[in-house]
Amino acid sequence: MEIKKVEKEKSVQISLIGRLDATTFSELQLVLDEIFKSKIKELVFDFKELEYVSSAGLRILLNAQKLALNNSFKMKLINVNKDVMDVFKITGFDEFLTIE
């Protein structure tokens, strides 16, 4: 999986390319840990080129969303494809994730 990070003022956009699964989620975790060290206002995940998300990926998104709530920054997902959206729907993640 390839991760692209774009920072603009206090807004961070992360583009994921490939698969967010059990073998790749730790890479994203490292990136996110780095981001959460500084205070941000917005976190945007661009899933345009993300093939799929497994439960390992969901776990990271869940934790990120919890952090966003506690540290009052905005978190949203853009360009979510159908397969990934299906996973969100099945697991009920679409209820609390902000998806545009």
């Binding site: 390992a56 969901l58 776990r59 934790n63 969303q65 996973v87 099945i90 697991t91 609390f96």
Partner: peptide
């Protein structure tokens, strides 16, 4: 099975994998 209708605060990260398998 995990409670997929729980609020964000109550959400547990575990058990989602098998739940997904059963669903898809």
């Amino acid at each position: 099975e995990p409670d997929v209708d729980a609020s964000l605060e109550d959400r547990q990260a575990g058990g989602l994998g098998i739940y997904l398998v059963k669903k898809i």
